[in-house]
Structure formats: structure tokens, C-alpha cells
């Protein structure tokens, strides 16, 4: 089959398996893209990395307790571990002289190594259900089936509703936390909302891109989107669209060639969007330079006249 017949087949949405993967990754992409704006604007990119790595031991423990690879149990385990990570980072930097960045790195490595150890124990436990648990490391979008879509859909709706309800609160607090506090908005609620949304979207998002690349899905979309708009609402939409589009293209690339992994391709496409935005958007580095040059030569001509 040549490229165009592949292309037509893929986008004719005739294949149910492909559709499941496509819908699943798109919904997750959009969810993570939305949450991404909160992450980037609250400057929590590092904590996101700690949370996503911490999810591994949670998933392992979820599996050890139930003995089955039910996405709901695994996600609950993952969310609990993510919450532990948030608490740990906060606790270490509060009780000791260790600064926040160091305590993030410590939490990340401790929890991730714990996860790898648990993963090894599970692999040697003889439970035949365990095969495929390692997929959580790099993600395996191809394994998304219809029952997963309900979970993704539920998370998507939850994230959207939370954002709609707390839209104004988040907007005010993300811009100026001090002011928000003085008008009576709870800082704990703000932090809880952001951490909660990150944990939830991470716990399900790792299905497509995996633990190691998860932070990219929660950082790059907003980083790219913020170059294109000065409007909070539009930033959220554009960020969601970037992540969705990357997901579709990533799935398409791995459909074209069986050797190509989906998750890493999603992130590669997403990073291209981010780089493109950083250089060539209206606020981009190159665009600004070109504009400065044009202005300079215009001024020169004015002077000559």
C-alpha cells in the first residue's frame, strides 16, 4: 500500500481498532492540553515530572492488590501515588533546609526506583496477567480498547467541569496569588485543584505516552499555545487543540509503520509545534528579529528622506 491509500484508510475511520486508539489518544490529548495551561502558568512543570514518575509504584501496587490489569484499579493506584508525590515534595522542603527543586528531584527518583523494583517483583511473581505492565513506561496507545474510552471520557468530562466551575478562581489566582488571597480565595483550593487535575490526567494519560514522556504532554501544549494568544480562554483551547493534533499525527505515523512507537511520536510532533511557535509565531524569536530589521530599515529610509 502506498502512502495515500494508507492515508485514506486511516482517515476514513472504517477500522474500529484504529478509531478506538484515535479517539482515546485525542481525548486524552485534549484533556492534558487543557491541564497543561494550568501547569505552565502556575510554574509547576517540575512537579509534574515528579508526579508522573511517582505514578509507577502506584500502578504496581494497584496491580499487586487486585492481580488484574483493570485500568480503573491501576489509575486509582496511580492517582494515590501522585498525591503522595505532591505531599512528599511539599513535606521535604517544609521540614528541612532542602529547597523545592532538590526535593522534587529526590521524590521523583525515590518513587520511580520504588516503582521499578515493584515492577521487577511483579514480573517474577508468576502472575500471567502482568505481561504488558511495562508498557506504562513508554505507553502503548495501540492497546487502547473500547472499555478504556469510558474511563478517558469520564476524566475528560471531570476536567472540563472542574475548569468551568473554577474558571474565574483559577484565572485570578494564577495571575496573582497574593491578590487572590486578599479577596478571600483559598490558596489551598487553588493548589489542590491544580495538583488534583494534574494527578488525574497523568494517571490516565500515561496509557498513550507513558510515564517518562508524560510531563511533555503536560508542559509542551501550553508552552506552544501561549505564543499564539493573549487570552486565557483561547490559550486553553489552543493548547488542547495542539495536544489533540499531535496525538492524531502520532497515531498516524505509527499506523504507517509497525515499528514506530505512538507515544514518542506524539511527543516529537508536539515538540515540533512548540519549537515552531517559539520561533515563528507572532511573539516568536525569529519573527521579532525580522520585524526589528524591517522597522530599522524603514527608519533609515525615513531619515534619508
Amino acid at each position: 500500500m502506498d502512502f495515500w491509500s494508507d492515508f485514506l484508510y486511516f482517515f476514513s475511520f472504517a477500522d474500529t481498532n484504529i478509531n478506538n486508539v484515535l479517539i482515546g489518544t485525542s481525548v486524552l490529548g485534549f484533556t492534558c492540553g487543557i491541564v497543561s495551561v494550568l501547569v505552565v502558568l502556575s510554574k509547576k512543570a517540575l512537579i509534574v515530572d515528579a508526579i508522573s514518575h511517582a505514578v509507577l509504584p502506584g500502578i504496581c501496587i494497584g496491580f499487586m492488590f487486585t492481580g488484574v490489569k483493570n485500568p480503573i484499579y491501576l489509575s486509582i493506584g496511580g492517582m494515590a501515588a501522585g498525591a503522595v508525590a505532591v505531599y512528599l515534595v511539599d513535606w521535604i522542603s517544609r521540614i528541612s533546609r532542602i529547597k523545592k527543586d532538590a526535593s522534587i528531584a529526590i521524590s521523583l527518583s525515590v518513587l520511580f526506583s520504588l516503582g521499578v523494583i515493584l515492577l521487577n517483583i511483579i514480573q517474577h511473581s508468576g502472575n500471567s496477567n502482568q505481561s504488558g505492565l511495562t508498557d506504562f513506561l513508554f505507553g502503548k496507545a495501540a492497546t487502547i480498547i473500547q472499555s478504556d474510552l469510558y474511563l478517558f471520557g469520564a476524566v475528560f468530562i471531570f476536567v472540563i467541569l472542574t475548569l468551568l466551575i473554577f474558571y474565574q478562581h483559577l484565572k485570578i489566582a494564577l495571575f496573582d496569588a497574593g491578590f487572590a488571597k486578599t479577596i478571600g480565595l483559598s490558596e489551598k483550593l487553588t493548589q489542590g485543584l491544580i495538583s488534583g487535575l494534574v494527578i488525574i490526567s497523568t494517571a490516565v494519560g500515561i496509557q498513550t505516552v507513558g510515564i517518562i514522556l508524560m510531563s511533555a504532554l503536560l508542559i509542551s501544549p501550553a508552552s506552544a499555545a501561549l505564543f499564539w494568544t493573549n487570552n486565557f480562554k483561547k490559550a486553553i483551547l489552543i493548547s488542547g487543540l495542539f495536544a489533540t493534533l499531535s496525538s492524531v499525527l502520532g497515531v498516524f505515523v505509527s499506523f504507517l509503520s509497525a515499528d514506530m512507537p505512538t507515544g514518542p511520536w506524539i511527543i516529537v510532533v508536539l515538540s515540533c509545534f512548540a519549537l515552531f511557535s517559539a520561533f515563528l509565531s507572532k511573539k516568536g524569536v525569529i519573527t521579532k528579529k525580522i520585524r526589528a530589521k524591517i522597522d530599522a530599515s524603514y527608519n533609515l529610509k525615513e531619515k534619508e528622506n
Binding site: Q168, L174, F175, L226
Partner: peptide
Amino acid sequence: SVDWDFPATVFDIVEMGRYGSKSLF
């Protein structure tokens, strides 16, 4: 104390003065 790259216009910021904890919605 704030990041002025936040995606908002001047009017968006001034409007924030009209919200209180009980009138957020």
C-alpha cells in the same frame, strides 16, 4: 510579584477587582 506574560489584557486584570470570594460564579 506577578508574571506579566500572563495571557490577559489590561481590562481582564482590572475586571478581577470586581470579583470576591462569594461572587466568583
